[in-house]
Amino acid sequence: MHIELIDFLLRALPNLLIGFPQERPGGLLLSVIIAMISIILGFIIALGMGIVSTSRWVLLRWLAALYVNLGRALPLLFLLLFVHQFIGGRRFNLNFNPTESAIIALTVYASVYFTEIIRVGWLSVPQTQIQSATLLGAGQLRLIRLRLNYTIHRFAPALVNQVITIFKDTSVISVLAVTELTFVSRAILSSNLQNSQYAVQLYVFVGLLYASVALLISQVATLKSGHNRLKQHYVTRLL
């Protein structure tokens, strides 16, 4: 029994990690790739949105608030079906394939949460820092860099949290049959009539795969922030 289970998992492993031979990348690799693309695109949109939402112009602020509120109010699954079925179908002749729809939906989803983090970080930069920088002759660009640096370092834990959440949420896109990890595990279970007996074991194994990537992300983040603390300490000592 145990040997059969191990044999089953070993046979499933390549498909789970990098997808079926005909459709690579797939599996965990595709989950990571889609999460990375969505996180990077989402972060870029959020930078714009976050800064716009602290703008002096009411209309811009209002639009950014609408985007965030709407994006936050919709469940990811709904957002995904909305993008794929309503917007991305034949209505506007866009014909998104499932992977494109998934990336768009996850990007929007990631961007609304990042926007909030960036907006709060942006507003939390102490006025004294901004004034000192201005006195030292910093221009607009330098000020933006200062505020961004401050935000990213101070709110790193919240950002890392969000990155892990987006990565885990890629499992939702399996409903569109994108060949990511959750889809591959479902397909493997129905690939052979005997496989149904390993349902629980396979899902536990897949859960471990998700967890190990999530842990890896938080480990890397911790190492990096530890490195930053050291640097700060060094600076204080110098002063």
Partner: peptide, 15 residues
């Protein structure tokens, strides 16, 4: 459908 053996499913080699 991809999850409905033996009428339609993805076999172990991904076919």
């Amino acid at each position: 459908r991809f999850d409905n053996p033996p009428l339609s499913y993805i076999d172990e080699d991904g076919n």
